[in-house]
């Protein structure tokens, strides 16, 4: 399963990169969303999949899945939500102020800094 996941993760990263390299702000944001999914799955896969039961002591099993990647991912999920929301509003404001979501047209001009 880990090998399958490695390829799934690779494809997620590939799509994310392609989207992030495009001009439209919305596509860039969707790209970051995909990228974080890929990263989360990568962390989970690194720790090994489906070993032992869920990491709850109440299960009283002999072995548990590694809880550390899960804790890391949980933090990452929430952070990526915050970042995505921030991006989204940034794009939204830029769109409203400037009437475009094309990053090439958002560049501003030389000497304007």
């Amino acid at each position: 399963m880990e090998i399958v996941m490695a390829f799934v993760i690779g494809i997620l990263f590939m799509s994310a990169t392609y989207l992030m390299l495009s001009k439209s702000l919305l596509r860039i944001i969707i790209g970051t969303g995909l990228l974080s999914h890929g990263a989360h799955l990568l962390i989970l896969t690194m720790g090994g999949l489906k070993r032992g039961t869920v990491p709850l002591l109440g299960e009283e099993a002999s072995s548990y899945t590694d809880p550390i990647p899960q804790a890391l991912i949980l933090t990452a999920i929430v952070i990526s939500f915050g970042v995505t929301a921030f991006f989204l509003v940034l794009a939204y404001r830029a769109y409203k102020e400037l009437g475009t979501d094309n990053t090439e047209r958002l560049r501003g001009n030389e000497g304007n800094d």
Binding site: E2, G10, M14, Y18, L42, T45, M46
Partner: peptide, 16 residues
């Protein structure tokens, strides 16, 4: 992007 995808796949495989 294909490069990034390939590298990440390689890393995922090796890391495991």
């Amino acid at each position: 992007s294909i490069g990034v995808g390939a590298i990440v796949t390689v890393i995922a495989l090796s890391a495991h």
